[in-house]
């Protein structure tokens, strides 16, 4: 009898370990899928190399909507590049939990009004490595008209889950955020435009 019970424990234990493995495996799979989908989209975005007009539209009309291109049924507003983290990512116009699985998304604001907030999952190849950024690191965002906006990291902070006001507090030109740990707190990177 005791043998059987012992075996049951062992089996149960092995099942749990296997479950842990499957869970971890799924997370890794989701992460690499996200990396791939972002890279795929990035390839398909047609961002002009040079800007056509003498005076870009956004300079005359900073309240305009950011122009978009539609790829696979989703609208993208441009490309974010962070050389220090080796990241080049397309950015979706609107956020949703489904959208986060494909690419980083705009949470609110625009590059033209210097109130730009971008968010992404903490996948390794989305915003998972934001913590490795330091003050002074540079990044750039290119919109679908080819206008380039350069930024510099000013500070990093970790915010409580309910700190909505702090997250949205308006004086930062560019904000990036993602979740740390198990999704409760947020890593927030604040940048100023150059």
């Amino acid at each position: 009898m005791k043998n059987k019970k012992g075996n049951m424990f062992i089996y149960a234990g092995l099942v749990m370990i296997a479950a842990a493995g499957i869970f971890a495996g799924y997370n890794f799979y989701e992460s690499s899928k996200a990396a791939k989908s972002a890279a795929d989209v990035s390839q398909q975005l047609h961002i002009p190399e040079t800007v056509v007009e003498d005076v870009p539209l956004y300079v005359s009309y900073p309240e305009m909507e950011m122009p978009t291109e539609t790829v696979d049924g989703h609208r993208y507003i441009g490309r974010l590049e962070i050389p220090v983290l080796n990241l080049e990512l397309p950015v979706m116009e609107e956020w949703s939990y489904d959208n986060f699985k494909i690419a980083p998304c705009r949470y609110s604001g625009t590059a033209y009004l210097n109130n730009f907030i971008l968010a992404a999952h903490n996948y390794r190849y989305h915003f998972g490595t934001l913590n490795n950024l330091s003050e002074g690191d540079k990044m750039s965002f290119t919109d679908m008209d080819g206008n380039v906006f350069e930024y510099e990291v000013i500070l990093k902070e970790v915010l409580e889950p309910d700190a909505i006001e702090d997250l949205l507090a308006g004086q930062w030109d560019l904000t990036l955020f993602t979740c740390v740990g198990n999704g409760s707190h947020r890593m927030v990177v604040r940048c100023k435009v150059l």
């Binding site: 012992g6 062992i10 234990g13 296997a18 842990a20 869970f23 971890a24 999952h121 999704g183």
Partner: peptide, 28 residues
């Protein structure tokens, strides 16, 4: 949005699993 993957079940399951295996071996 909550932009984190759920990782907490992994160490929990692993630790429980290990515990059960140990218990099982001991009982055997």
């Amino acid at each position: 949005p909550k932009t984190g993957q759920t990782w907490w079940p992994v160490p929990v399951l692993f630790a429980c699993g290990l515990l059960f295996v140990v218990i099982g071996l001991y009982r055997r």
